[in-house]
Design a protein around this nucleic acid. Structure first.
Lengths: 174, 174
DNA sequence: CATTTTATGTCAGCCATGTTGACATATTTT
DNA sequence: AAAATATGTCAACATGGCTGACATAAAATG
């Protein structure tokens, strides 16, 4: 019985190879990590009657004070209507404030109020602690690898923009 | 004016420190990476009229042929009803097959059919390619760090189980 | 200055997928 | 024989995606 020779060259991305299996495992790990990573804020959001969508808005407004609605839409990749729904609630309940743009008065610049900043802090704290613990356990160099890999997962077209948003992204290797 | 001395000791996880900011960035990167990582299969799922919930079921049944409904519920952390809905569709449309357990005839063991394996392969291929590219770009050692950090993000109570599911998890350091 | 484009808001309605709680059936365990 | 377990199912509800249409104000353009 003739066993076909395994072709040489670039390692395959096929799961029938050991290489592919390792990738499948790496993918599966991302599922489990994300599942638990998200669980911390979820409980807290419940207390406020908010959901993950609110969390995302609060996070990005916190990170980009004065962000416009259009920019937020581009980050979240959801529709105007989906954003409007949660944004309206956050504004009504006093977590987010709007200001008319100075140069362009059509724009609504978004900011967190004091309550908004407090909410953001409460949401972020457990996630920061979780990530800090995971990075420390993974040893030195893990943070840099982590950043590089995550940045590499982003769509090519969007990478420059994401790098810009993330101030301290690792230097790209050529 | 007296500026309070910064307390020494463990690096803070507070974002007002540089340490906290780096963590916030690392967290934000996870959002962007996950956003794009999920986008590949989403398009394909649309063609089948399926959603992400179907994808998860197909993935875990593929990785664990003969898995029981109870095990699947424990992995996905959703309710019986939520699972039943998508599982029913996958079975009706011939992507998943059920078998009565041999030892325990109450159990329904789940398997992918030939079509199911084909669907799984089509869904997984772009994600494997994306992860492979990201890991390669991040350089040697990135894969091990990646696994360690992700595993570290998992809830303490669940880590052993996840390690067991992921065959080649990195060795824990003491 | 008149027109067009842009940024935003809003309405109505649909769909996927999460939730709860109750209950039924078959099978295994005690 | 009774209790516990694995699964399936029903009704009902909430969140947060989506589409498409339309309105307003302000800016940009010819």
């Amino acid at each position: 019985m003739v066993v076909p020779a395994k072709p040489l060259g670039k390692p395959s991305v096929d799961r029938r190879s050991a290489e592919g299996d390792r990738l499948t495992e790496a993918i599966e790990l991302l599922f489990f990590a994300y599942r638990d990573f998200i669980s911390d804020p979820d409980e807290l959001l419940d207390e406020y009657g908010f959901g993950r969508a609110h969390h995302r808005v609060v996070h990005f407004v916190s990170r980009n004070p004065g962000i416009t609605v259009a920019e937020l839409l581009n980050i979240l990749r959801i529709t105007k209507q989906s954003l409007a729904r949660v944004l309206k609630q956050l504004i009504e309940r006093g977590f987010v404030a709007q200001e008319t743009g100075k140069q362009d008065r059509r724009q609504r610049l978004l900011y967190l109020t004091v309550s908004g900043r407090e909410l953001e802090e409460r949401l972020a704290a457990p996630q920061r602690a979780r990530v800090a613990a995971a990075l420390e356990k993974a040893g030195p160099g893990a943070e840099d690898s982590w950043r590089k890999v995550l940045l590499g997962l982003v769509n090519d077209e969007d990478r420059a923009e994401v790098e810009h948003r993330i101030a301290k992204a690792p230097v790209e290797q050529h």
